[in-house]
Design a protein around this nucleic acid. Sequence first.
DNA 1: TAAGTGACTATATTACAATATGGTCACCAT
DNA 2: ATGGTGACCATATTGTAATATAGTCACTTA
Lengths: 203, 203
Amino acid sequence: MIKKPQPIPRGPSEHNVRDQIVEAAAEYFSRYGYEKTTVSDLAKEIGFSKAYIYKFFATKQAIGEVICSNTLSAILNAINKGMVDAPTASERFRRMFKAAVAESSNLFFQDRKLYDIASSAASEQWQSTVNYQIEIKKIILQIILEGRDTGEFERKTPIDETVNAIYLVMQPYTNPLLLQHNLNLAEQAPMILSSLILRSLAP
Amino acid sequence: MIKKPQPIPRGPSEHNVRDQIVEAAAEYFSRYGYEKTTVSDLAKEIGFSKAYIYKFFATKQAIGEVICSNTLSAILNAINKGMVDAPTASERFRRMFKAAVAESSNLFFQDRKLYDIASSAASEQWQSTVNYQIEIKKIILQIILEGRDTGEFERKTPIDETVNAIYLVMQPYTNPLLLQHNLNLAEQAPMILSSLILRSLAP
DNA sequence: TAAGTGACTATATTACAATATGGTCACCAT
DNA sequence: ATGGTGACCATATTGTAATATAGTCACTTA
């Protein structure tokens, strides 16, 4: 049961209306912020009426979700990119944690308006941030599995508990809402905490 | 150089004015909250003028600091009480972490107005919360030292780093400002994280 | 001199009317 | 049917005038 009618892009049209909305939103949200941007602003930008926007998105938040989702995907990509050539699972973990914090901090300082969307999305439990957290957990799981496979990590603790615990430790630095309060530690914390976590994983 | 003139309690007077102010503040802050309580309210309560309050406290916040300090001291006492009869350092640690979270959560649900003071005190870095954090670190240090002494914990990692890392892990649950966002995890997190920390401490 | 205060100011907070915004819907055009 | 809109409503936000509050100080009283 799809509630949103999906107008199909016709013929050679390079980008359909939905994409235009997202594009306009990306610019406006980033420049003026989510709150200060009105749906009418976006409509005006793409030359349609406000009502037409609602044929594509059920709510303003749904547009925010897309932008937020893209932002978080970019962070995930950067994290994955920083991890690929790590020689060991331990090193993969260190780089992953460091990259996650570095990328989020970077967003905070370079594109504050987008960061704020991610932050309030986290506090309101938007789907985009739930997905982000799931992805982070997947990455943790992969690293643990790899480390257990190579004998680098212990295998006694139930893997779910291990992943969960590590996720909890990282949370204050990967969750945009919480990272704000911990920016002063963004330099040292990933290193110190990675060490603690890796000690806990020792066979 | 004491800036605040300290009127000396005369003769058999059981409690001096300063104590009366604190007493009134404890009641008002707890009932109406820090913001909603005015200095005039406190003055009226003890039967003096507002100006006289300022002979004893430089600012309203200074009164808040005393109340907050008392609140946090009570939590620290409860933590220590819960720890005393633990048979091992590991068990001491588990109980300490659990009690810290339990006590803070309890404050949140039982005396929300006081909790809010502690919370904003943490966000504004009042001295009372800085002291609280120092005390928590001292407790962690003591447990680690004890565990290292009995051979229960490893001794390779620099003790400062160990204490710091553990402190960072506990932070989201001991800091009132952060605990608010993590109340849903207040049940499980201390257990899971204690286990992780103790694994990291294994010799 | 020590205990205590009324009256004052600059800033913060509140109350609320005016405006703006998110969201809906009946309807138009092709 | 598909593509598109103006007019509308309930709620949120803002501007601002009125009020309240933190903090000071010269002063009084005993």
